[in-house]
Write a protein that binds this DNA or RNA. Structure first.
Lengths: 208, 208
DNA sequence: GGGTGGATCACACCAAAGTATGACCCGAAC
DNA sequence: GTTCGGGTCATACTTTGGTGTGATCCACCC
């Protein structure tokens, strides 16, 4: 799970045109990128590699599904791989829709190899950064998971700025018990100071 | 400065076509939006309204400047108004470039009135949200400005999790002096608790 | 030259935080 | 039924935090 961050990035190419698949595979190989190709959206999903680091290059015209719909579906099912769209017959409306949904680039065919490489490199970099940030947060969330119900309550009130006695009052328990839970929360979270704990609480909160 | 947040949003329309300017002005008026129109990029800049809330609708073809270059220039000179591009002859490459630079939408002419209104409404909302967030931060930064050099140093070390005696050691002063600066910083920043102060420090830091 | 504000520090005192020891209750798991 | 973890609490103690009073020094400004 955490090792994914160090996995080598994979470039997934989804295009019904076999010659294009071959050309792109050769292009990515030539710069040392690991490329997987698929003729259909279904093939990509069946491969089960959607959680690994990398990005996905999608042609607008696919046998089983419109490329834009595929992009939307990926978002729906939680696949966060950055998308590079390409097409031979697209129009402005399509490109704008893809970009609004967060596509890294939208390349009309024929494109220059370098443009595709630039887009893919940017996509991989974005994916890497996202995984780094989310990895840190999931690590924190994991630690949060080790907190007991009481410890979590106490921690929330403490990081909100309340004093031990206020927390005790709010929870209907004694101050000494609050201190115990507070200390336990600090230990479990790996926070050496209250400032650390506050930052941890802030980092996890906005996520959801 | 802060009152801008409550100012009414202005929709700036930059298009060399007088009939289009008139049509858009009528469209925006019809939904209660305050519209200003300009024939050239220069005219817009001369109006000096770039800091007020709102958004800007730009035609790709302008007399004095390409619309994409205008968009890039706005970014360069720090105008953060959300951009809606429109064009009668654009291609995919243009639309992608505009979207990569953060345009809200890119509408080929002729467009449906509703599409333009949707884009402008989304642009105004984004502008509003940005101003809200940045307003909060600038308010904090203003308070930071009232801190003396020592108070700022102490606050930074304190929010980093150091104890008063550690801060005293780091700065080569006595602990009692640290307490005084610390208390002054709390008062000036309007922080009732250390947790508040930590959050303020966090909110200002990532901005830069 | 007197006023202002920043920085420094001491002394004293109280409030709050943090820790250790020991204890009890309870439910779930073995 | 015994063990284990969570939750509860008390007593006692030390360390930090926070405030007030009073004071000195210095730079700057009118």
């Amino acid at each position: 799970m955490l090792s994914q961050i160090n996995d080598k990035a994979i470039v997934h190419v989804v295009d019904d045109d076999a010659s294009m698949r071959g050309a792109l595979e050769g292009l990515f190989d030539s710069v040392g990128l690991d490329a997987h190709t698929y003729a259909t959206a279904r093939d990509f999903l069946a491969a089960g590699l959607a959680d690994k680091p990398g990005c996905i290059v999608i042609d607008i015209r696919l046998p089983d599904m419109n490329g834009l719909d595929f992009q939307a579906q990926l978002i729906d099912i939680g696949v966060r791989l950055p998308v590079v769209m390409m097409t031979g017959y697209g129009d402005i409306t399509m490109s704008v829709r893809a970009m609004k949904r967060g596509a890294i680039d939208f390349l009309p065919k024929p494109f220059h190899d370098q443009d595709m490489l630039d887009a893919v490199m940017a996509a991989i970099e974005r994916d890497r950064q996202r995984r780094t940030v989310e990895g840190d947060i999931s690590q924190l969330q994991q630690r949060f998971g080790t907190l007991s119900a009481r410890e979590l309550q106490v921690m929330q009130l403490v990081t909100a700025g309340k004093m031990n006695k206020q927390v005790a009052n709010d929870l209907g328990i004694s101050e000494i018990t609050v201190k115990i839970h507070r200390g336990a929360a600090m230990r479990k979270m790996g926070a050496k100071t209250l400032a650390d704990l506050v930052r941890m609480a802030e980092a996890v909160k906005p996520k959801g």
